[in-house]
Amino acid sequence: MNKKIFAPVVLMTAMLLSACSTAPKTTSLLDQTRMDYQAAQNNPNVQTLAPLEMRQADVAMNDANKAAKDNESSEKIDRLAYIAKQKIGVAQELAKQKQAEAAIADAAKARDQIRLEQRTNEADKAKMQADQAKAQADQARLAAQIAQGEASEAQRKAQEEQAKALEMQNRNAALEAQLADLQAKTTVRGIVITLGDVLFGVDQAKLNPDGMRTVQKLATVLQSNMQRTVLIEGHTDNTGSQAHNQDLSERRAAAVRSALVLMGVSRDRVEIKGYGEAFPVAENNNAQNRQLNRRVEIILSDVNGKITPR
């Protein structure tokens, strides 16, 4: 009876001992190494940045696991686990180093990019300032050219005006010299040249030789001053009838105009008017005064061809 009970117990014990002898052996260092290895495998940076070191850690980890599976001594298992742990640490540290280097490189690249953008912005700003300066210089140069052109134009006009003034001055001086010979007088109506009664035949409208010479001088004045016109007014004393005097004054004025036309003066530059005895310059109370009233007055226009009416 006792022999029957003892046999199963012995068999169970043998089975338990057999099971214990086939279970993989482990140590705390191996367990810690396995945890480190698992962490390294789960870290993509380690797989990417330290692939060679990770393969070396794989080999070392396999050696440690094999020793545990083969129930090698704890000393050997720990020695192999230590080697694996060191290789895992090398892989992790290398991955951290390369990650840091990459971060530094990225930072340097970002810094370089910022510097490049700053230099680009500075260059763009400098170019914009240069363009603005050039535009301002162009505007200033254009303004100077315009001002110079205006100054030149103003100078040209001033020179033209000066030349015109000088020409007018010369003409006026020449005119004064010519009119002095004709004994012309300046009045409120303008310059007046008087042809006396002695330049005509007695009670006639025909100019005598002296009268023709005087009219020739007047023609020369008009030819030298084409912008001027003349009004020829005939006057008489009060001797004789009013109708006779009016007719004589008109005929004498017409005679002077005809002489001027013959001497080359355009007819449309000469206007005539007869006033008879209406505008005496002296009392008709003696022969000398009546002679003064028998006259032809020639009024010279201004430079614009205007004559102040009587």
Score class of each variant (00 low, 15 high):
residue 111 R to C: 12
residue 238 N to T: 10
residue 13 T to Y: 10
residue 199 L to Q: 07
residue 136 Q to M: 15
residue 90 V to E: 15
residue 91 A to D: 09
residue 211 G to D: 11
residue 42 N to H: 12
residue 166 L to D: 14
residue 36 D to Q: 13
residue 26 T to P: 03
residue 72 E to I: 05
residue 185 K to T: 15
residue 230 V to Q: 00
residue 109 K to Q: 04
residue 92 Q to S: 14
residue 187 T to V: 05
residue 276 G to E: 02
residue 183 Q to C: 15
residue 120 T to C: 09
residue 80 L to F: 04
residue 154 A to R: 04
residue 195 L to V: 08
residue 163 A to T: 08
residue 239 T to K: 09
residue 260 L to A: 02
residue 31 D to M: 01
residue 242 Q to K: 11
residue 114 I to W: 14
residue 232 I to Y: 03
residue 23 A to M: 05
residue 131 D to E: 15
residue 62 N to D: 12
residue 237 D to W: 05
residue 186 T to E: 04
residue 52 L to K: 07
residue 177 A to H: 04
residue 263 M to Q: 03
residue 267 R to S: 12
residue 252 R to D: 05
residue 38 Q to F: 11
residue 182 L to E: 06
residue 91 A to L: 11
residue 22 T to I: 04
residue 53 E to S: 12
residue 204 Q to Y: 03
residue 55 R to D: 08
residue 283 E to V: 01
residue 40 A to V: 02
residue 91 A to V: 08
residue 254 A to Q: 03
residue 133 A to E: 10
residue 274 G to R: 06
residue 169 Q to H: 10
residue 90 V to D: 15
residue 245 N to M: 08
residue 280 P to N: 10
residue 115 R to I: 15
residue 134 K to L: 07
residue 12 M to S: 07
residue 276 G to S: 06
residue 198 V to Q: 03
residue 1 M to Q: 11
residue 260 L to S: 04
residue 169 Q to S: 12
residue 84 A to Q: 10
residue 124 D to E: 14
residue 15 M to L: 14
residue 170 N to P: 03
residue 288 Q to A: 02
residue 269 R to Q: 06
residue 183 Q to W: 13
residue 176 E to W: 10
residue 68 A to I: 04
residue 138 D to F: 09
residue 25 K to M: 07
residue 235 H to T: 02
residue 194 T to P: 03
residue 101 E to G: 14
residue 67 A to Y: 00
residue 244 H to S: 11
residue 69 K to I: 03
residue 284 N to Y: 11
residue 80 L to V: 05
residue 57 A to I: 06
residue 139 Q to S: 09
residue 229 T to W: 07
residue 103 A to T: 03
residue 103 A to S: 02
residue 200 F to D: 08
residue 64 A to D: 00
residue 130 A to G: 04
residue 71 N to P: 01
residue 218 L to A: 13
residue 239 T to F: 13
residue 259 A to Y: 00
residue 82 Y to M: 14
residue 137 A to Q: 12
residue 272 I to G: 06
residue 246 Q to G: 12
residue 183 Q to F: 14
residue 249 S to L: 09
residue 110 A to D: 02
